[in-house]
Amino acid sequence: MTELKLLTNGALHMVDREFIKGNKELDSTKLSKYVEQPDFSIEIDSLLDKVDEVMEKHGSSKKSVIDKKLASTVHKELDLTRRQASNPEIWNYLSIYERPEFVRYRWNKQDGEKVAKNRYIVRSSSKQSLNRQAFSSLWWVAELTYSEEVGYDYTEKVFDSQEFKNWIMGPSYSRKDEVVRAMLRELHGVQDEKLREILPGLTERTSTYSIDAMNEKELRGLIGGLHDFNDKDADFMTKIKNLV
């Protein structure tokens, strides 16, 4: 039985260029010195089997297909609280100790460029760091989009757009569940280039309108209004009122 463990920061200096390229394995005896038991217990055999299965079956599938396939799996298999999931040491354990081959597989670049170090390592509990690492990013996207109503439907939508993926752990208003759901309902399918035009307008609106006081329908009006009008001066609140 394999349990989830912590890989403490002392091990991070061992992650060098050759390891990232897949040209060498890390010395497991040295690495083990930095492995510690967390104050909770989660078995990860099933997770590791499913990760291996995806690597075997999906071969060179599109990266978004792999993410969609694995995000809900990682989230379901790792029953973590948000506090536990913001500890970098559990993610570093998975990517450096248990499955570095998955990081190379998922983030391998066709042009021979090496995989970025931050796909292996979560340096701190910052949202940027957690949103980049191979395993933590999958768990957090699923955590922030899962709902009892629709399960992981929204999770899959996030992986259709790199802009959504970056946005979801970005601005402070994306911390509100209803905003995430409204965003995905209104703007899923919109091209990334168009999203880049729309999102600054939304950030601007949230400085004078209280998104915390809005229900999901009002939020959809706010977000959809920006998309439909694409005009900062449009009276989008009229549209909200018509919706309510």
Partner: peptide
């Protein structure tokens, strides 16, 4: 007018209304 108080935590990406 209404008063609204929210709790936020950057690290766990949490934002909740606790008074309205």
């Amino acid at each position: 007018f209404e008063i609204l108080v929210k709790v936020q935590n950057i690290t766990t990406h949490t934002r909740r209304v606790i008074l309205r």
